[in-house]
Protein backbone atom coordinates (compact mmCIF):
# COMPACT_ATOMS: atom_id res chain seq x y z
CA UNK A 1 0.00 0.00 0.00
CA UNK A 2 1.35 3.42 -0.81
CA UNK A 3 1.32 6.04 1.86
CA UNK A 4 0.83 9.46 0.35
CA UNK A 5 2.45 12.37 2.07
CA UNK A 6 0.29 13.74 4.81
CA UNK A 7 0.19 17.26 6.06
CA UNK A 8 -0.02 18.00 9.74
CA UNK A 9 -3.37 19.22 10.96
CA UNK A 10 -3.42 22.97 11.31
CA UNK A 11 -3.12 24.36 14.77
CA UNK A 12 -5.88 26.65 15.92
CA UNK A 13 -4.90 30.15 16.91
CA UNK A 14 -4.77 30.84 20.59
CA UNK A 15 -6.83 33.98 21.20
CA UNK A 16 -5.37 37.15 22.58
CA UNK A 17 -6.06 37.54 26.23
CA UNK A 18 -8.02 39.02 27.99
CA UNK A 19 -10.84 37.10 26.45
CA UNK A 20 -14.16 38.19 25.11
CA UNK A 21 -16.06 39.85 27.81
CA UNK A 22 -19.31 41.48 28.55
CA UNK A 23 -22.74 40.40 27.41
CA UNK A 24 -21.81 39.66 23.82
CA UNK A 25 -18.93 37.45 24.93
CA UNK A 26 -21.26 35.71 27.31
CA UNK A 27 -23.92 35.14 24.67
CA UNK A 28 -21.38 33.86 22.20
CA UNK A 29 -19.91 31.34 24.62
CA UNK A 30 -21.42 27.90 24.71
CA UNK A 31 -21.81 28.24 28.45
CA UNK A 32 -23.64 31.53 28.11
CA UNK A 33 -26.04 30.12 25.54
CA UNK A 34 -26.79 27.25 27.83
CA UNK A 35 -27.55 29.63 30.67
CA UNK A 36 -30.01 31.45 28.43
CA UNK A 37 -31.64 28.17 27.59
CA UNK A 38 -31.91 27.17 31.21
CA UNK A 39 -33.38 30.46 32.37
CA UNK A 40 -35.86 30.66 29.51
CA UNK A 41 -36.72 27.02 30.03
CA UNK A 42 -37.35 27.70 33.69
CA UNK A 43 -39.73 30.55 32.79
CA UNK A 44 -41.61 28.21 30.47
CA UNK A 45 -41.80 25.56 33.15
CA UNK A 46 -43.25 28.01 35.65
CA UNK A 47 -45.83 28.99 33.07
CA UNK A 48 -46.67 25.36 32.43
CA UNK A 49 -47.21 24.67 36.11
CA UNK A 50 -49.52 27.65 36.40
CA UNK A 51 -51.26 26.72 33.18
CA UNK A 52 -51.87 23.19 34.31
CA UNK A 53 -53.30 24.31 37.63
CA UNK A 54 -55.54 26.73 35.76
CA UNK A 55 -56.67 24.02 33.39
CA UNK A 56 -57.62 21.76 36.26
CA UNK A 57 -60.14 24.34 37.41
CA UNK A 58 -62.32 22.97 34.65
CA UNK A 59 -63.26 20.21 37.04
CA UNK A 60 -64.69 22.84 39.39
CA UNK A 61 -67.30 23.61 36.78
CA UNK A 62 -67.92 25.84 33.84
CA UNK A 63 -68.44 29.00 35.84
CA UNK A 64 -65.28 28.74 37.84
CA UNK A 65 -63.28 28.01 34.75
CA UNK A 66 -64.68 30.87 32.73
CA UNK A 67 -64.37 33.37 35.52
CA UNK A 68 -60.81 32.21 36.02
CA UNK A 69 -60.17 33.01 32.35
CA UNK A 70 -61.86 36.30 32.89
CA UNK A 71 -59.81 36.98 35.97
CA UNK A 72 -56.67 36.41 33.94
CA UNK A 73 -57.71 39.31 31.77
CA UNK A 74 -58.87 41.64 34.48
CA UNK A 75 -56.42 41.07 37.28
CA UNK A 76 -55.03 44.30 38.62
CA UNK A 77 -57.98 46.32 37.43
CA UNK A 78 -58.76 49.06 37.94
CA UNK A 79 -55.22 50.02 38.97
CA UNK A 80 -53.98 48.54 35.73
CA UNK A 81 -55.67 48.62 32.34
CA UNK A 82 -57.36 45.43 31.22
CA UNK A 83 -55.16 42.59 30.06
CA UNK A 84 -52.02 44.16 31.54
CA UNK A 85 -50.92 41.11 33.44
CA UNK A 86 -51.94 38.77 30.67
CA UNK A 87 -50.09 40.79 28.07
CA UNK A 88 -47.05 40.99 30.28
CA UNK A 89 -47.15 37.25 30.70
CA UNK A 90 -47.51 36.81 26.99
CA UNK A 91 -44.53 39.06 26.33
CA UNK A 92 -42.37 37.24 28.83
CA UNK A 93 -43.47 33.96 27.35
CA UNK A 94 -42.76 35.08 23.83
CA UNK A 95 -39.33 36.33 24.83
CA UNK A 96 -38.62 33.11 26.65
CA UNK A 97 -39.63 31.05 23.66
CA UNK A 98 -37.50 33.16 21.33
CA UNK A 99 -34.49 33.04 23.65
CA UNK A 100 -34.97 29.34 24.16
CA UNK A 101 -35.21 28.60 20.48
CA UNK A 102 -32.31 30.88 19.68
CA UNK A 103 -29.98 29.10 22.07
CA UNK A 104 -31.30 25.69 21.02
CA UNK A 105 -30.65 26.48 17.38
CA UNK A 106 -27.24 28.01 17.86
CA UNK A 107 -26.09 25.17 20.10
CA UNK A 108 -27.43 22.63 17.64
CA UNK A 109 -25.53 24.30 14.82
CA UNK A 110 -22.37 24.39 16.87
CA UNK A 111 -22.82 20.71 17.69
CA UNK A 112 -23.34 19.83 14.05
CA UNK A 113 -20.10 21.56 13.18
CA UNK A 114 -18.24 19.84 15.99
CA UNK A 115 -19.47 16.41 14.93
CA UNK A 116 -19.57 16.34 11.15
CA UNK A 117 -18.87 12.62 10.82
CA UNK A 118 -21.21 10.02 12.22
CA UNK A 119 -20.07 6.72 13.64
CA UNK A 120 -20.58 3.71 11.46
CA UNK A 121 -21.52 1.51 14.38
CA UNK A 122 -24.89 2.36 15.83
CA UNK A 123 -24.23 4.52 18.84
CA UNK A 124 -25.66 3.14 21.99
CA UNK A 125 -26.47 5.57 24.72
CA UNK A 126 -24.24 4.82 27.64
CA UNK A 127 -25.92 7.31 29.89
CA UNK A 128 -29.45 8.54 30.49
CA UNK A 129 -30.93 6.58 27.67
CA UNK A 130 -32.84 7.85 24.73
CA UNK A 131 -34.73 10.65 26.42
CA UNK A 132 -31.93 13.19 26.24
CA UNK A 133 -31.61 12.70 22.53
CA UNK A 134 -35.23 13.74 21.93
CA UNK A 135 -34.64 17.30 23.13
CA UNK A 136 -34.10 18.91 19.77
CA UNK A 137 -36.77 17.31 17.63
CA UNK A 138 -39.01 17.08 20.68
CA UNK A 139 -38.72 20.84 21.00
CA UNK A 140 -39.76 21.28 17.39
CA UNK A 141 -42.82 19.11 17.90
CA UNK A 142 -43.69 21.16 20.95
CA UNK A 143 -43.46 24.39 18.96
CA UNK A 144 -45.69 23.03 16.24
CA UNK A 145 -48.08 21.93 18.92
CA UNK A 146 -48.14 25.35 20.55
CA UNK A 147 -48.91 26.98 17.21
CA UNK A 148 -51.84 24.67 16.70
CA UNK A 149 -52.83 25.05 20.30
CA UNK A 150 -52.94 28.84 20.08
CA UNK A 151 -54.94 28.68 16.89
CA UNK A 152 -57.23 26.23 18.57
CA UNK A 153 -57.88 27.48 22.06
CA UNK A 154 -56.62 31.04 22.15
CA UNK A 155 -57.63 32.41 18.79
CA UNK A 156 -60.23 29.78 18.11
CA UNK A 157 -59.24 29.75 14.45
CA UNK A 158 -59.27 26.00 14.22
CA UNK A 159 -61.81 25.57 16.98
CA UNK A 160 -65.34 24.46 16.05
CA UNK A 161 -66.79 27.14 18.33
CA UNK A 162 -64.49 29.89 17.10
CA UNK A 163 -63.13 32.90 18.89
CA UNK A 164 -66.36 34.15 20.37
CA UNK A 165 -67.14 31.17 22.49
CA UNK A 166 -66.21 30.97 26.16
CA UNK A 167 -63.00 29.23 26.95
CA UNK A 168 -64.96 26.40 28.51
CA UNK A 169 -66.93 25.82 25.36
CA UNK A 170 -63.84 25.93 23.21
CA UNK A 171 -62.17 23.29 25.33
CA UNK A 172 -65.18 21.01 25.34
CA UNK A 173 -65.72 21.44 21.63
CA UNK A 174 -62.04 21.12 20.83
CA UNK A 175 -61.71 17.74 22.48
CA UNK A 176 -64.99 16.39 21.26
CA UNK A 177 -64.69 12.64 20.67
CA UNK A 178 -65.42 13.23 17.00
CA UNK A 179 -62.18 15.20 16.82
CA UNK A 180 -60.21 12.31 18.32
CA UNK A 181 -57.21 13.15 16.14
CA UNK A 182 -56.88 16.52 17.88
CA UNK A 183 -56.81 14.79 21.20
CA UNK A 184 -54.29 12.29 19.87
CA UNK A 185 -52.08 15.13 18.73
CA UNK A 186 -52.31 16.68 22.18
CA UNK A 187 -51.37 13.40 23.77
CA UNK A 188 -48.33 12.99 21.57
CA UNK A 189 -47.31 16.57 22.19
CA UNK A 190 -47.78 16.18 25.92
CA UNK A 191 -45.63 13.10 25.95
CA UNK A 192 -42.96 15.11 24.16
CA UNK A 193 -43.34 17.88 26.71
CA UNK A 194 -42.99 15.28 29.43
CA UNK A 195 -39.83 13.87 27.92
CA UNK A 196 -38.48 17.36 27.37
CA UNK A 197 -39.00 18.20 30.99
CA UNK A 198 -37.86 14.83 32.22
CA UNK A 199 -34.41 15.90 31.06
CA UNK A 200 -34.82 19.66 30.99
CA UNK A 201 -35.85 20.09 34.60
CA UNK A 202 -32.68 18.76 36.19
CA UNK A 203 -30.60 19.85 33.26
CA UNK A 204 -31.41 23.47 33.93
CA UNK A 205 -30.08 23.14 37.45
CA UNK A 206 -26.93 21.52 36.14
CA UNK A 207 -26.50 24.31 33.62
CA UNK A 208 -26.80 26.92 36.31
CA UNK A 209 -24.27 25.07 38.40
CA UNK A 210 -26.75 24.09 41.06
CA UNK A 211 -26.60 20.32 40.68
CA UNK A 212 -23.95 18.55 42.64
CA UNK A 213 -23.47 14.98 43.80
CA UNK A 214 -26.46 13.97 45.88
CA UNK A 215 -28.41 17.03 44.78
CA UNK A 216 -28.23 15.76 41.21
CA UNK A 217 -29.76 12.50 42.24
CA UNK A 218 -32.61 14.27 44.00
CA UNK A 219 -33.10 16.63 41.09
CA UNK A 220 -33.25 13.71 38.75
CA UNK A 221 -35.95 12.04 40.79
CA UNK A 222 -37.72 15.38 41.17
CA UNK A 223 -37.65 15.92 37.42
CA UNK A 224 -39.20 12.53 36.81
CA UNK A 225 -41.95 13.17 39.35
CA UNK A 226 -42.75 16.71 38.29
CA UNK A 227 -42.73 15.95 34.59
CA UNK A 228 -45.04 13.00 35.15
CA UNK A 229 -47.40 15.09 37.26
CA UNK A 230 -47.47 17.79 34.61
CA UNK A 231 -48.26 15.36 31.84
CA UNK A 232 -50.96 13.68 33.88
CA UNK A 233 -52.40 17.03 34.96
CA UNK A 234 -52.58 18.27 31.39
CA UNK A 235 -53.89 15.01 30.05
CA UNK A 236 -56.70 14.95 32.58
CA UNK A 237 -58.65 17.67 30.75
CA UNK A 238 -58.78 16.29 27.19
CA UNK A 239 -59.32 12.78 28.50
CA UNK A 240 -62.13 13.94 30.74
CA UNK A 241 -63.78 15.61 27.76
CA UNK A 242 -63.19 12.50 25.64
CA UNK A 243 -64.96 10.22 28.07
CA UNK A 244 -67.65 12.79 28.67
CA UNK A 245 -66.84 13.58 32.31
CA UNK A 246 -66.66 17.22 31.30
CA UNK A 247 -69.13 18.45 28.78
Amino acid sequence: MVTPRTTPPKAQKTPKRPGRQGLSGFLRSSNGKKAVMAVSGAVLVLFLIGHMVGNLKIFLGEGTFNSYAEWLRTVGEPALPARTMLTLTEIVLALAVIAHMWSAVSLARRAAKARPVKYAARRKSQANGYVVHTMRYGGVIIVLFVVWHLLDLTFGAVNPKGYDATPYDRVVAGFDPSRWWVTAFYVVALVMVGLHLRHGLWSAFQTLGLANGRARHLLNVGAAVLSTLLVLGFLAVPLAVMIGAVK
Binding site: Q12, K13, T14, P15, G19, R20, G25, R28, S29, S30, N31, K33, K34, L107, R110, A111, K113, A114, R115, A127, N128, V132, H133, M135, H199, W202, S203, Q206, T207
Partner: peptide, 14 residues
Amino acid sequence: EQMDLEGFGGCTNT
Protein backbone atom coordinates in the same frame (compact mmCIF):
# COMPACT_ATOMS: atom_id res chain seq x y z
CA GLU B 1 -13.52 30.59 25.48
CA GLN B 2 -10.67 28.47 24.16
CA MET B 3 -12.89 25.40 24.19
CA ASP B 4 -15.37 27.26 21.98
CA LEU B 5 -12.65 28.62 19.70
CA GLU B 6 -11.35 25.13 19.08
CA GLY B 7 -14.75 24.24 17.69
CA PHE B 8 -16.06 21.95 20.41
CA GLY B 9 -19.81 21.92 20.88
CA GLY B 10 -21.72 23.12 23.92
CA CYS B 11 -22.83 20.73 26.62
CA THR B 12 -26.51 19.87 26.80
CA ASN B 13 -26.09 17.60 29.78
CA THR B 14 -26.58 14.34 27.97
